[in-house]
Simulated scan of single mutants.
Amino acid sequence: MARVISLPATGILVLLFGCGLLAFVAAAWMVVLPMAVAPYLLALVNRRSELRADAHAADLGFAHPLAGVLHTMRAHEEASYAAAGPQARRTGGLAKLLSSHPDYADRLQHLQPYLDGRPPR
């Protein structure tokens, strides 16, 4: 009689333990995943906000001065990379994803319609 009861009881215990372990892993994953993705999403929101701020400044008529400042900042950045030599560290893909500001080329590209006299709508 003990053998007949022991086998199903062992199966039920293994099933319960497995379900508990699966629930724990799922709960831990739901904590780890947002923590891993949050910095990238926050950086994306910051970059989009910066582009919106540039568009707002361009709507107010500051497209040409802003473009001049961005060209100057881009030239200074390129000069600092050239002065540092070939060992200068360029930003890679991961650093770009975590950057809170878009690079100068993207900002200038988004300003181009304002500079051409045809603001996007």
Score class of each variant (00 low, 15 high):
L13R: 05
S6D: 14
P39M: 10
V37W: 05
L16W: 03
W29P: 00
R48E: 13
E77M: 13
F24L: 11
D106P: 00
T91R: 11
T10R: 15
I5F: 14
V25W: 07
Q112N: 08
A36G: 09
R52E: 07
L7H: 05
V31T: 08
D116Y: 01
S6F: 11
R118H: 11
P119K: 09
L7R: 13
H76R: 14
R107Q: 08
L15A: 15
L98C: 03
A75C: 05
L108K: 10
G11A: 12
N46T: 07
A88F: 04
H101C: 06
A95N: 00
R74G: 13
Q87S: 15
A23V: 12
A82H: 02
A84R: 09
R3C: 07
G11E: 04
R107A: 08
V45Q: 02
R74E: 12
A23N: 06
Y81G: 11
P39Q: 00
L22D: 09
G92C: 04
W29L: 14
H71D: 12
E50K: 08
D54Q: 03
V45Y: 05
L15P: 07
P86S: 10
A79V: 11
R52G: 02
D116A: 12
L44H: 14
P113Y: 03
A79F: 03
L51K: 07
V37P: 00
L60A: 14
A79Y: 04
A28F: 01
A67P: 12
L42Y: 15
V32M: 05
T72I: 04
E77P: 06
P113D: 04
H64T: 12
D54H: 06
A88S: 13
L108E: 01
M1G: 15
Q109A: 13
W29C: 10
H56E: 09
A88Q: 09
R74A: 15
P113A: 07
A84N: 06
M30T: 09
G92M: 03
S80I: 12
A95F: 00
A58T: 01
H101E: 08
R107P: 05
A28N: 00
A63H: 00
A83N: 04
A95C: 01
H101N: 09
N46H: 13
V32C: 04
P119T: 03
L21E: 08
D59W: 05
E50S: 12
L70Y: 10
A67H: 06
R118M: 05
A58C: 02
H64V: 10
P8W: 08
A84S: 10
T91G: 11
P119Y: 02
D54V: 03
W29T: 13
A9N: 13
G18L: 14
D103T: 01
P65W: 00
N46W: 01
Q112T: 04
P34R: 02
A84D: 07
A43L: 08
V14G: 15
A28W: 07
M1L: 14
V69L: 08
L111A: 03
T10N: 11
A23G: 11
L51W: 01
L60P: 02
E77N: 13
